[in-house]
């Protein structure tokens, strides 16, 4: 498995676990089961944990294959990145427009709208990394 495929797997799993937990926490705030101030500590801890693990695991795979980590993307890797980003764009666009629609027409507050736009960003990232893995495995 190439360095960049490993990197995509790491980001996919960490986003699913840590940011999945983050949005579970947000859903508790939106349903009124948790106060926003109390949830902030959990959310901050999850985001910090996500960033720290991303760095640590990427350093670990870079140490494992330093040559691959240093090398610039070749044409196949650039094509995979472009195609995956193209797919993710529609997820981001759709999620953002739905959030804005809900804000203006369903009366969502600033917190709910902001978190849903953030969810669209995270969902787009998930789709991007998942698409990259599919292209690396099945071909592009």
């Amino acid at each position: 498995m190439s360095f960049r495929e490993k990197s995509a797997w790491i980001s996919l799993v960490l986003i699913a676990v840590f940011l999945g937990a983050y949005f579970w926490n947000v859903s508790l705030v939106l349903s009124g089961e948790m106060r926003q101030a109390a949830a902030m500590h959990w959310q901050l801890a999850l985001v910090v944990g996500f960033v720290v693990l991303e760095i640590v695991l990427h350093v670990a795979i870079a140490i494992q294959s330093p040559r691959d980590a240093r090398a610039p993307k070749d044409e196949r890797e650039r094509l995979i990145s472009l195609k995956a980003t193209h797919i993710a764009y529609f997820v981001l666009l759709g999620g953002t427009l739905l959030s804005l629609f809900a804000h203006w027409h369903l009366g969502w507050g600033a917190y709910a709208t902001t978190q849903h736009v953030l969810l669209a960003v995270v969902a787009a990232e998930l789709v991007k990394f998942a698409s990259q893995i599919v292209f690396y495995r099945r071909g592009v």
Partner: peptide
């Protein structure tokens, strides 16, 4: 040729058509 080993492998397996 300036690509990764995985790209050469993908070309050999017919999973990628090079430029």
């Amino acid at each position: 040729i300036g690509v990764t080993r995985q790209t050469v492998n993908a070309i050999e397996l017919g999973k990628y058509s090079p430029s």
